[in-house]
């Protein structure tokens, strides 16, 4: 589904990513862990076209998307969430999800001039279904900026659901959440996002990683230092050293 070959990203003299090779087969939930500044978010940004990679190739679903702009990549069926949550704050919950949907399929000039979805119409039903899945249907008319944090993260996920993305990239989906909220998020990822989709999850919280991921990849200083089954990877000495060294794993 997603293939990275020798991916490299430099900012001036700083190499944020170097020589990353990664293969994400369809249907997998890949976790990416690593200390702060190890290049996790840079990897996500390079894949989603926020900036072009400095070297290497990225392929998604058989197409070489190296150097493509974000909106073209998104239209191939890729959706993401953001570490610091990006929503359209002055739009309602419903409008946020609807916007994600029609942005993907504008449908020509006439499509652009089509009015808001009518109650009971096809668009409305799709948006409502996505909101239902993440448990936000009741707050559909609330402005996104007024939502509490866990609900905002779920709204970002609803956005990925409504466009039926093939690949979903989650950047710290449980960031800033309590253990109970984290467990709830793990359930949403397992039961709602994962079925029928490929996922890449960046996370610090071991509770979430071990709870949902089928494979794990560890980054340190922009390099991949380990990859494999979660239990096996977390057991390795070098991983424990760079990542878990001395810190309580459960809330690092």
């Amino acid at each position: 589904m997603l293939t990275l070959q020798g991916l490299e990203k430099r900012f001036g003299a700083l190499a944020a990513l170097s020589g990353i090779d990664l293969e994400v087969p369809a249907g997998e939930i890949l976790g990416i862990i690593g200390p702060n500044g190890s290049g996790k978010t840079t990897l996500l940004n390079a894949v989603t076209g926020v900036y072009p990679p400095s070297a290497g190739r990225i392929a998604f679903g058989g197409a070489d998307i190296t150097g493509w702009k974000g909106h073209r990549i998104a239209r191939l069926g890729l959706a993401r969430t953001f570490q610091n949550i990006r929503l359209f704050p002055t739009m309602t919950v419903f409008q946020n999800v609807w916007a994600a949907q029609h942005a993907r399929t504008p449908g020509g000039l006439l499509g652009l001039l089509r009015s808001r979805p009518r109650p009971g119409g096809g668009d409305t039903r799709r948006v409502e279904a996505a909101l239902e899945q993440v448990g936000l249907l009741a707050s559909r008319e609330v402005l996104a900026r007024h939502l509490p944090l866990p609900a905002r993260r779920r709204l970002e996920i609803a956005r990925a659901l409504v466009v039926d993305a093939r690949l979903v990239l989650l950047d710290e989906p449980a960031g800033g959440m309590t253990p109970a909220e984290t467990a709830d998020m793990a359930r949403v990822i397992r039961e709602v996002v994962a079925p029928g989709r490929t996922c890449v999850v960046i996370e610090h919280k071991m509770a979430l990683i071990t709870g949902v991921c089928t494979r794990l990849c560890v980054l340190d200083f922009g390099r991949k230092i380990a990859e494999g089954h979660p239990d096996e990877v977390l057991d390795r000495a070098e991983v424990r050293e760079v990542y878990l060294g001395g810190v309580d794993a459960s809330d690092a």
């Binding site: 900012f11 940004n45 926020v50 900036y51 953001f82």
Partner: peptide, 8 residues
């Protein structure tokens, strides 16, 4: 890149 640096 500048945009991304500022906001992501």
């Amino acid at each position: 890149e500048a945009l991304a640096f500022r906001r992501v």
